[in-house]
C-alpha cells in the first residue's frame, strides 16, 4: 500500500443556526481507513459538523473536501445524494415500510449486481438470514447493523455515525460497538463516530477529536487526549480528576500530592491528576500526603476510594478491587510515575 490518501478535509468551517454559530471555524482531516471519533458535550456542534459533511446543513463559510473533490466551498455545493457519504443515524432510521433486504438494497437499486451487493453487505454484518424481516422485528443492535449495511452498500467514501449506540441498552452497547468497529475495519473504510460518551469514543476510535463550543480543541490518539489533555476543560471532559497547583523545576513538578515528570517550563502551574494516577498506601509507610478513606465505591474490576486530606479537601483514588482498605482507615497517597501535562496558571 502506498501512503494514505486524504478522504476528508475541512477548512475553517463555520455553520450557523439562526444567530448562533454551532460550528465556529473547524479544520480537520481524515485519512483513508482511519476511524475517528468526534467527541464533545451535547450542544458542542459535533452533530452539526457531521451533518455539514453529509450535506444536510449549509455552512456559512469554509470548505469541505471529500477525496480531493470540493463538495462545499465558496460557490460550490453538492447535494447530499451526490456526496457518496454513508450515514448511520441514532435510531438507525431504517425505512419502516421496507424489509431489511429492501432497506439494504435501497441505495444500489438499478445498479448492476445490486442484489449480490446487498447480500454481500448483509453477510458482512452477519444478518444474512434476516433479510425478509421488517425493522421493528429486530433488536436495537441488529437494527444498527442493518443501518450500517445499508450505508455500506453503495461503497461510500466515508461512513458517518451519529450517536448510533446512544439508545441501546448498556449491556448491549459495548458489544455492538465492537461489532461495528470490526465491520468498518474489514470493509476498510474511513469513519467518524459522533458521541458524547468518552468511554465509547476512547474504545472505538484510533483518533479522537475533542470538540467544545463549536471548535476542535484537541486531536490525538485516545491515550494522548486522555493523558495529555491540552487544557483543564478537555481533561475534565475526558474523565474525573483533580486540578492541583504545583511548581515545575527542571522537568519535574512538585505538588501537595507528590512529584513526577512533566514537560513544562519552570515556574508555577497546575497539574491534572486522574484517580488512577494516585495510589493508596498504608499510613505506616511514611511518605506521601496523609488522609482518611471516607467512602468507597466498588465497581467489580476496580474500586474508587474517596480520601479526605488533612486540609479538608477530598480526592478520589482508583485502585484494583483486590486492594482492600476499610472506610475510616488512615492512608497516605502516592503519585504514579509518568509524564504529566502541566497547565500554566493563567
Amino acid at each position: 500500500m502506498t501512503r494514505p490518501t486524504t478522504v476528508l478535509e475541512i477548512r475553517r468551517l463555520v455553520v450557523g443556526y439562526g444567530k448562533v454559530d454551532a460550528v465556529r471555524g473547524v479544520d480537520l482531516t481524515l485519512e483513508d481507513r482511519q476511524i475517528a471519533a468526534l467527541l464533545g458535550p451535547s450542544g458542542c456542534g459535533k452533530t452539526t459538523l457531521l451533518r455539514a459533511i453529509a450535506g444536510f446543513e449549509r455552512p456559512a463559510s469554509g470548505s469541505v473536501w471529500l477525496s480531493g473533490e470540493a463538495v462545499s466551498d465558496n460557490g460550490t455545493w453538492l447535494e447530499p445524494e451526490r456526496r457518496h457519504v454513508g450515514m448511520v443515524f441514532q435510531d438507525g432510521a431504517l425505512f419502516p415500510h421496507l424489509t431489511v433486504f429492501e432497506n439494504v438494497i435501497y441505495g444500489v437499486r438499478g445498479r448492476p449486481r445490486a442484489r449480490d451487493r446487498a447480500v454481500e453487505v448483509l453477510g458482512q454484518v452477519r444478518l444474512g438470514e434476516l433479510g425478509h424481516r421488517f425493522p421493528d422485528q429486530l433488536s436495537g443492535g441488529q437494527q444498527q447493523r442493518v443501518a450500517l449495511a445499508r450505508a455500506l452498500a453503495p461503497r461510500p467514501r466515508i461512513i458517518l455515525l451519529d450517536e448510533p449506540f446512544a439508545n441501546l441498552d448498556a449491556s448491549l452497547r459495548a458489544r455492538v460497538r465492537q461489532e461495528v468497529r470490526s465491520i468498518l475495519e474489514s470493509a476498510g473504510i474511513a469513519a467518524i463516530l459522533v458521541t458524547h460518551d468518552q468511554e465509547e469514543a476512547l474504545s472505538f476510535a484510533d483518533e479522537i477529536m475533542v470538540m467544545m463550543g463549536g471548535k476542535i480543541r484537541q486531536v490525538g490518539s485516545p491515550e494522548e487526549v486522555y493523558h495529555q489533555p491540552v487544557s483543564p476543560k478537555v481533561a475534565r471532559f475526558l474523565g474525573n480528576g483533580h486540578l492541583v497547583p504545583c511548581r515545575v523545576t527542571s522537568g519535574r513538578f512538585h505538588s501537595s500530592l507528590g512529584e513526577a515528570t512533566c514537560r513544562a517550563e519552570d515556574g508555577p502551574g497546575r497539574v491534572f491528576l486522574r484517580p488512577e494516577d494516585l495510589t493508596l498506601r498504608r499510613w505506616s509507610q511514611g511518605a506521601g500526603a496523609a488522609g482518611t478513606v471516607v467512602a468507597r465505591r466498588f465497581f467489580g474490576h476496580d474500586v474508587l476510594d474517596t480520601v479526605q486530606l488533612a486540609d479538608g479537601q477530598t480526592i478520589e483514588v482508583r485502585s484494583l478491587s483486590s486492594t482492600t482498605v476499610p472506610v475510616g482507615s488512615p492512608v497516605r497517597l502516592a503519585l504514579r510515575e509518568r509524564t504529566y501535562r502541566v497547565f500554566s496558571t493563567v
Partner: peptide, 29 residues
Amino acid sequence: VDPAAEEAARSLGKKRWVVFFTTVLPQLK
C-alpha cells in the same frame, strides 16, 4: 415520519423528489 430516514435516503444517492416518493409517501399510506 422520521426525517432521519429521508436523510439516510438522500445520503444513499437519491434526489429529493425520489426520496419523497420512495420513503415519505409510503409512510403516509
